[in-house]
Design a protein around this nucleic acid. Structure first.
Length: 465
RNA sequence: GGGGACGUGGUGCAGUGGCCUAGCAUACCUCCCUGUCAAGGAGGAGACCGCGGGUUCGAAUCCCGUCGUCCCCGCCA
């Protein structure tokens, strides 16, 4: 520990490059120049610098060759014309980790307008095994199963990497917008003591000899925290033990949750959600323009209002427009959601569509019933390009009503004592929503399977890697 | 859990009773190439066609079983 501290405190000197100004410091540590990132390399023309990264590609043209080095920021071309330097690469497979030191030169023939010359190569981590599939080609070839079995490698593909950078930006945009709207970020437990809420199956774990469960939603906790902060949000995993096997379900996913107090009704929640989605999309356009291009994604613009239909209206519309009679059914089938979105896109100019007023029977016990028709709820779903990506609504805030609903749903008050406590001691009218992060990304990127929008998906058959 | 399809060199595909001594692309190995960037050219190695059984003179190909994967539905984010 002492030696580590000593190493950390060894003298470091920050040297500014006079030609580049304040934005591009060289950090010189112990006499060695720290590497620069490939994305910045073109700003160092005429300078001798060090780059480090993975051997993305290597074209050996005999007397000279082109090395494309990939690091976390991008790729950059290095020209090698020294026989002994080239020899260092000839025994290596792609993805070997290299450090190269050389001079950056302007070069119109290079993709970035610059490349490195007079490079000296140091092999940091050689790869001797040929790759199971190509990851330096424009498109990724393997099927989903093969890809997922090799996710640690496959995720390095530029398209995959771009996709998951957008995934990160969705989370960042969510946090940014809600923080600006005076929401407070919280983290609630994922190990919980009672299996609760809706019919969703929960994973049971052995908690020091007692049963405990993996949280299927932060719902109760975020509502409780409305009693503390009024407005809260959480980004975290949720677990569903359902034995579903479809392209739009996994057993662990990330939920973007928000909950807010002192609302008039569910429409206030929908308005905040609209703002969240609009901001997330705009922030992707501005912060991930290159990634959007690489993934060939069409990011929609969100208008002032997202159109909304009541479930009954939606079902009438399906009947008249598409001829299928699902009127009276308590929920929408996937095909119905696809039709509704097709309609909204064609007739309302929106790729997003709210569906509201689902029947009480299909919603959790804490959902606020509609004033005019108590068999319906002030709950909503948000559909995006044919798939449900958000569920939300107004919640019941009065203790007696909530208690009665719980009892009617067959839930023992003792099991949700902590939750009920918040209501016993006063909760404001409130509501919230939960966005399925991977669902959102899947629909945004036009992917055919939720697993493609998940870094390391967990489903019935897969818990590794 | 129900329905449908598919399993062929590392990867992605073609071949649906004998012309298959299993083909193509790419990756891999050897060589050529001073501008590659999905590089190009020449050559080479690599698969008993998921596994087990059956039908047949003959099976990658047909049948049964089994395992695996993908798609649709139920359910949901």
């Amino acid at each position: 520990m002492g030696s580590f501290a000593a190493r950390r405190s060894s003298p470091a000197r920050v040297v500014r490059n006079p030609r580049l100004g304040r934005g591009f410091p060289f950090v010189v540590i112990g006499g060695m120049m720290q590497r620069i990132r490939t994305a910045d390399a073109r700003n160092y023309i005429g300078q001798q610098v060090t780059l480090a990264g993975w051997m993305h590609s290597w074209r050996d043209l005999g007397k000279f060759g082109f090395l494309v080095l990939r690091d976390g920021s991008g790729t950059f071309q290095v020209v090698l014309d020294d026989e002994s330097e080239m020899q260092k690469l000839r025994d290596l497979q792609y993805e070997s980790v290299l450090e190269v030191n050389g001079t950056i030169q302007a070069e119109p023939r290079a993709a970035t307008g610059a490349e490195m010359h007079q490079a000296r190569v140091q092999v940091l981590s050689p790869v001797s095994e040929p790759l199971p599939f190509e990851i330096n080609k424009k498109a990724l070839k393997p099927g989903l199963d093969v890809f997922l079995n090799h996710a640690p490698l496959g995720l390095r593909h530029l398209q995959k990497r771009a996709l998951f950078r957008i995934y990160a930006q969705i989370m960042a945009g969510f946090r940014q917008y809600l923080t600006d709207q005076r929401f407070v970020e919280i983290q609630t437990p994922k190990i919980v003591g009672s299996a609760t809420e809706s019919g969703a199956n929960v994973f049971c774990i052995d908690y020091f000899g007692r049963p405990a469960y993996l949280a299927q939603s932060p719902q109760f906790y975020k509502q409780i925290m409305v009693g503390v902060f009024e407005r809260v949000f959480e980004v975290g995993p949720v677990f569903r033990a359902e034995k579903h096997s479809t392209g739009r379900h996994t057993n662990e996913y990330v939920s973007l949750d928000a909950e807010m107090g002192f609302i008039q009704d569910h429409r206030d929640v929908m308005a905040v959600l609209t703002g969240v989605v609009r901001h997330m999309f705009e922030s992707i356009k501005t912060s991930c323009a290159a990634e959007v291009e690489i993934c060939n994604i069409d990011v929609p613009s969100v208008g002032v209002e997202i159109p909304a239909l009541r479930l009954r209206q939606a079902q009438d519309l399906i009947f008249t427009r598409y001829g299928e009679d699902c009127r009276g059914e308590p929920d929408l089938a996937p095909q119905h959601e696809a039709w509704l979105c097709e309609y909204a896109h064609a007739e309302l100019g929106s790729e997003l569509l709210f569906v509201t007023h689902y029947p009480t029977s299909k919603r959790p016990f804490y959902t606020m019933p509609d004033d005019e028709d108590p068999s319906l709820t002030k709950g909503f779903d948000l559909l995006f390009r044919g798939c449900e990506i958000v569920t939300g609504g107004q919640r019941i805030h009065r203790y007696e009503q909530l208690l009665n609903n719980a009892l009617q749903a067959g839930i023992s008050p003792q099991d949700i004592d902590g939750y009920l406590q918040a209501f016993k001691y006063g909760m404001p009218p409130h509501g919230g929503f939960a966005i399925g992060l991977e669902r959102l990304l899947m629909q945004l990127a036009g992917l055919g399977n939720l697993r493609e929008a998940t870094l390391f998906p967990r489903d019935m058959e897969r818990v590794i890697p």
